Simulated scan of single mutants.
Amino acid sequence: MARRKTSFLTGHYYHVYNRGNNHQRVFFERDNYLFFLKQTRYYLAEETADVLAYCLMPNHYHFLVYLRQDNLSEKMAFLSLSYTKAINKRFKRCGALFQGPFQAIYVDQEEYLLNLSRYIHLNPVKAGLVQKAEEWEFSSYQEYVELRRGVLPQFSKVRQQVRTAQDYRGFVESQNHLVQPYVQSLMLDE
Rank of each mutant, 00 (worst) to 15 (best):
M1D: 04
M1K: 08
R3T: 07
T10G: 07
Y17F: 13
Y17C: 00
R19Y: 02
N22Q: 11
N22I: 00
H23N: 10
Q24K: 13
R25G: 00
R25F: 05
V26L: 03
F27H: 03
F28P: 01
F28H: 13
R30C: 01
D31N: 11
D31H: 07
Y33K: 07
L34H: 03
L34E: 13
K38E: 15
Q39I: 02
E46S: 12
A49C: 14
A49H: 10
L52K: 08
A53G: 10
A53F: 08
Y54S: 07
L56D: 01
L56Y: 04
M57P: 03
P58G: 12
P58I: 08
F63R: 03
L64H: 09
V65E: 04
V65R: 12
Y66K: 14
Y66H: 15
Q69D: 11
D70I: 05
D70N: 14
N71K: 09
N71R: 13
E74V: 04
E74F: 10
F78M: 09
L79A: 09
L81P: 00
L81C: 07
Y83S: 01
T84F: 06
N88Y: 09
R90E: 08
K92A: 06
C94Q: 07
L97D: 00
Q99H: 11
G100Q: 04
Q103W: 01
A104C: 03
V107G: 01
V107M: 04
L113Y: 07
L114A: 05
N115R: 08
S117T: 10
R118Y: 02
R118D: 02
R118Q: 06
Y119K: 06
L122A: 10
N123L: 08
P124R: 07
A127I: 08
L129H: 11
Q131T: 14
A133H: 11
A133Q: 06
E134H: 03
W136K: 05
S140L: 09
E143A: 14
E143D: 15
E143Q: 15
Y144R: 13
V145P: 04
R149H: 13
R149N: 15
V151Q: 15
V151N: 14
P153N: 11
Q154R: 15
Q154L: 11
S156P: 02
S156V: 06
R159G: 01
R159H: 13
Q161E: 09
V162Q: 10
T164K: 06
T164Q: 11
D167E: 15
R169T: 02
G170N: 15
E173Y: 11
Q175G: 15
N176K: 09
H177K: 12
V179N: 01
V179D: 00
V179K: 06
P181E: 09
Y182F: 10
S185G: 02
S185D: 05
L186M: 11
M187S: 02
M187G: 04
E190A: 02
